[in-house]
Design a protein around this nucleic acid. Structure first.
Lengths: 360, 360
DNA sequence: TATTCTTGATAAAGGGCTTTATCAAATAGA
DNA sequence: TCTATTTGATAAAGCCCTTTATCAAGAATA
């Protein structure tokens, strides 16, 4: 920052106030009584000088010297940074931004896009992009386990948005309770007299997928239904065929649970092609908010992911972590937020034929 | 960043490669031949060491020592940071983000929200938030002239999104040509046989408002119409009454040009209350994209602001500025982007009665 | 062979801040 | 009155990197 009239520095304040730089630093950072003792009089003199010069600390220097930069990084492993309408990750960001601002933090947006060949993400162009900030919020599904573990080992302060497993189970996160949200969907289907249910899932190794499957099973268990009433179909949306659906229906399935809206939409599309209507001919529930940008035709019976709250909570946890006195604490910071059930219009009682056949 | 295995630093690389820190710095930053000469052999040795240690430069130190941080700040004077659906400023951000990433820059989001009482914005909590970054993109209408001038004087590199006046006319910007966009709207209204037109404007001192008025006048001039055919109504949307509109219509006005959609919507609301229909009873055009979050009932006859392109262009200009060799250049960096005319559905030929009265 | 360029590399001086260890003076305790 | 403690403040080292000025050695020129 080339300046005509040079920006005042700590030394200038010290000179004007007739004290040492150390004292100024202590006072300005509210470390009086911790690093050193400073009389009221001196403190007032210093603030006076600060005001007079319009002194502003250089954040780079602060950071370098081990102070805080009052900046949090938001790191997303998604290929496209969610600054995009209707993007699934967008509401998280809003929450993150709001909470960060409330705590006086600015946000450094980092994306994992990387045109170097080394495949590292957090590190880019030979520069650790996190060294500049006080801590990081990690967001997105495609996480690079290796890098995250490296951060953990470095005791770098970060919080995930969404549950994340790790060998020592020591990752901090603000997560949504997908399992319970899912179980409630199952409850609902049972209330609507569905007996046989098919779970259409990608069965990816991601935590979000694992939790949903846990929820499905939990739903069956707590309603006292045997797992023989639960059919699985595993694969990605483009692999799902009408034949698959027909087969499931023939086995007595009257309701589908789709892991996400991509699968849900595919079910709907196939069914529509065959002249079936939802929820007249079959019921359908979706586990969570839409990932796709397609405006849904019907309102899914689904649960809402508290994305906004998750973003806020993640920042809250991070700030708490940064303010924590004990540098030896190993316990992760965590919050589990509930999902909200949405009745929607895609679930109804099974077709009479099915009810009859059940009674028979 | 407390680390178990300390992050390697420049000195470590130097030691491993058996050269001085200075040499490493020169090589890593591609300053060979500029600051010093280094043989191919040595360079290779250094890169080897860098790879082996996984060295990553500390951005804070780089910044402090006068290097570049590869971070751009996005500063908005708006009270709410545009991370929000359907926000007027949102598309700008998308463009900014895309272009920044293309150039390898990360983004620091700064907002003008300020809970200290001193009323300063770029400076907050006794910390100049811009000292950390290489340059800044300024966005938003409520700019603080004083601060911007201070930046200019400091020769701090920044680019505005949108045209900005300054005493020496030396502010860099990527702007949209509102004047021409507006003039085209006027052309269009004349094509539709409107004779008397009312311009409903806030007449704020903002550049965007000034340019639109210039455009209105230009439209009249280049169509050879006298300004006595141009009526003005000045004020904010909540001050506009049905009486005002009636008066204008009585004076022979058949088309309104609203400076923004807030005014446009108010016109529509009032008219609707009186049983008038648009464009049957009167025509209406709006100068630019909607500021409000209200979904419009009709598609305005309007022009589109190339918000996305403006964002990108602003970053392009900033990057260019940063790469500029000549530190003494005083000429601002500027681009003027065209707006796109949108026919919409709110303009038609004037009511027959009016055409007749004109002929009479 | 003596002199001038080049080439290749370095020492050292910052850049602006934080923090630890240290100290003098003032106060309290005996 | 003399020592022990508390109070108020500082010197100096360090954070990690960039850049300028300087230099030794080898190559080219005379």
């Amino acid at each position: 920052m080339p300046a005509s009239r040079k920006t005042p520095k700590l030394a200038d304040v010290a000179r004007l106030a007739n004290v040492s730089e150390a004292t100024v630093s202590v006072v300005i950072n509210g470390r009086v009584g911790k690093h050193a003792r400073v009389s009221e009089t001196t403190q007032e003199k210093i603030w006076q000088a600060v005001r007079e010069l319009g002194y502003v600390a250089n954040p780079a220097a602060k950071t370098l010297a081990g102070g805080s930069s009052m900046i949090l990084a938001v790191f997303t492993f998604e290929p496209i940074f969610p600054i995009e309408h209707r993007n699934f990750y967008y509401p998280f960001l809003i929450g993150i931004e709001q909470e960060a601002r409330q705590h006086g933090y600015d946000l450094l947006l980092l994306t994992s896009i990387d045109n170097t060949q080394d495949g590292r993400h957090i590190y880019r162009n030979g520069r650790n992009r996190l060294q500049l900030v006080d801590g990081a919020i990690l967001l997105g599904a495609e996480n690079n386990k290796q890098e995250v573990l490296a951060l953990l080992e470095d005791r770098y302060p970060f919080v995930f948005v969404g549950r994340r497993d790790s060998p020592n189970d020591n990752i901090s996160y603000a997560a949504a309770d997908y399992a319970e949200g899912t179980a409630e969907i199952v409850d609902y289907l049972f209330q609507y007299q569905h007996q046989k249910i098919a779970y259409i899932t990608s069965r990816s190794p991601k935590e979000s997928s694992i939790d949903r499957e846990i929820g499905v099973r939990r739903g069956f268990e707590r309603n006292g239904r045997g797992l023989h009433n639960l059919q699985f179909w595993t694969g990605s949306a483009d692999r799902l065929t009408l034949h698959d659906l027909t087969l499931l229906l023939q086995q007595g399935v009257t309701a589908f649970i789709a892991e996400d809206d991509l699968l849900g939409n595919q079910i709907l599309r196939l069914a529509h092609g065959a002249g079936w209507q939802c929820p007249r001919d079959f019921s359908l529930a979706v586990l969570g908010d839409p990932l796709s940008l397609v405006e849904p035709v019907q309102t899914w019976t689904a649960f809402r992911i508290p994305r906004h709250a998750m973003g806020r909570e993640a920042v809250r946890l991070l700030v708490q972590m940064l303010g924590e006195l004990d540098p030896n604490r190993t316990a992760p910071y965590r919050t589990m937020l509930p999902c909200t059930f949405v009745p929607g219009t895609t679930v109804a009682y099974p077709p009479v034929a099915d009810l009859k056949s059940r009674d028979a």
